[in-house]
Design a protein around this nucleic acid. Structure first.
Length: 415
DNA sequence: TGTCCACTGGAAGGGAGGGCTT
DNA sequence: AAGCCCTCCCTTCCAGTGGACA
């Protein structure tokens, strides 16, 4: 009988204890390190809910990986635990977490909240089709049918506001005026302090009753966090302090981002495991760092829509032609050539300029607005990802088959 | 100092697509 | 089937702009 192709991997000793999930950023540990002050602050604000009163709305600010989401989820767990011991009239506290990166439309947010109060599957609000007003009315009716306090956490609320405006927030912050039994309070989480400028002044003042800032972790704090998780994830002696320190130092230096530090540690461990090494070394961390960076690029490029891929390929071929600083006009010229040859519909320059901005935001290209005096004002665009690897990924897309190995005829006006 | 270039970036609106209601 | 509603992707239009140049 043929041996399983997985056999040799099944027999190797794992450097992980049974559960490697503890190294995922989504894992919420029993104790969150270095966030006591913030947790206390939020808990003291939310404690009013346990008395059946409406807590103040809260806005939480902090860069990515500073523990905002983890803290919000942790608080959710704790508050649910606390309600078990409460007398009946105060028992009904609903803590609803919504990630606005996933649910980013007015309709979506209202539908999501509403469906938490509808048990019968057939009565649920459909993902599309109803007017927003109708969704709002159902939501309002279902929430208000018994006394309760509802805490709605809107994670990445800035994305939601940028994309869909502040109408929903206006309604949600105002809904308490219409409710007889229930009370709603909102916790907004954002990594962007500026988004409140977009809000209607009434919404802004209602929403930011309380503001809490999450500072980035420093190297020592990251080290503590990594040690905590490493202790849960690995057998003794697999990892030593210098490796943890390196992971912490690398990320503290760049962003103070715990999520990335944990990813780095996990990938380093997986690299060691795949290499059948008995422990995790500093070299594994270096390898992991490179792998994570490349994986991010590959994933981002692969999932780009076809038109963006053409624009990116245009920039890439322009650079291959020796034009390392291209203008929007250059890129559009190259794009037109590629779109025609590949048989794709042709977008306007205005739209292509937006696609370039999107790729700038994603970090695939860097685009700075620069004035060339009489030469006009435009963006200067450069590729920020490795040229050859990116080209290879783009060429794998079957719809770009007709322009594989294409040599650009378009010449920049500046050369 | 005013002109002028090549856009930028905001706004409005159209149309396709998905889905519900009557 | 016709009529709605919402979202997404895109076009069209246009005022605004930084800075080299005459």
């Amino acid at each position: 009988m043929q041996e399983s192709i997985f056999k040799e991997y099944l027999n190797t000793k794992s450097i992980f204890k049974k559960d490697r999930e503890v190294l995922r950023p989504s894992y919420i540990p029993e104790k969150l390190l270095h966030r006591d002050a913030q947790i206390d602050q939020i808990a003291s604000i939310l404690s009013t809910a346990l008395k059946g009163e409406r807590p103040s709305n809260i806005l939480i600010f902090g860069k990515t990986g500073t523990g905002k989401t983890a803290t919000a989820k942790y608080i959710g767990k704790e508050i649910t635990k606390a309600t078990h011991d409460l007398p009946t009239p105060f028992k009904d506290i609903r803590y609803i977490y919504i990630n606005c990166e996933v649910v980013d439309t007015q309709y979506g947010v209202l539908q999501n909240i509403g469906n938490r109060f509808i048990e019968d599957f057939d009565e649920r609000i459909p993902p599309t089709g109803w007017s927003t007003e109708r969704v709002y009315n159902i939501l309002w009716e279902k929430i208000d049918n018994s006394p309760k306090v509802v805490v709605v956490v809107l994670d990445e609320i800035d994305r939601f506001v940028y994309k869909s405006g502040d109408d929903t927030l206006y309604h949600l912050t105002k809904i308490n005026d219409d409710l007889d039994n229930a009370k709603i309070s909102i916790i907004g989480i954002s990594n962007d302090l500026k988004f409140t400028e977009l809000l209607d002044p009434r919404v802004r003042s209602r929403l930011s009753d309380e503001k809490i800032v999450f500072p980035p972790y420093d190297a020592d704090q990251l080290k503590d966090i990594l040690w905590q998780r490493a202790g849960m994830a690995f057998e003794d002696g697999i990892i030593d302090e210098s490796v943890i320190s390196l992971c912490a130092a690398v990320e503290a230096h760049e962003h103070g981002d715990a999520r990335r530090a944990l990813d780095l540690l996990r990938v380093a461990a997986e690299t060691a495991e795949r290499g059948r090494d008995d422990n995790i070394s500093e070299q594994h961390v270096v390898k992991a760092k490179n792998k994570i960076e490349l994986d991010c690029v590959i994933e981002a490029v692969k999932t780009l829509p076809i038109q963006s891929k053409l624009v990116l390929l245009g920039i890439l071929l322009g650079e291959e032609n020796g034009n390392s600083r291209q203008t929007t006009g250059d890129v559009y010229g190259a794009y037109k050539e590629l779109a025609k040859k590949s048989g794709t519909s042709l977008l306007t320059q205005r739209r292509v300029a937006d696609l370039i901005s999107e790729m700038d935001m994603m970090g695939l290209v860097s685009a700075r607005v620069k004035s060339f005096g009489r030469g006009g004002r435009t963006r200067e665009i450069q590729l920020s990802v490795p040229l050859m690897e990116t080209k290879r990924i783009l060429e794998k897309d079957p719809s770009l088959e007709p322009i594989k190995n294409h040599k650009l005829k378009y010449q920049s006006t500046l050369i």
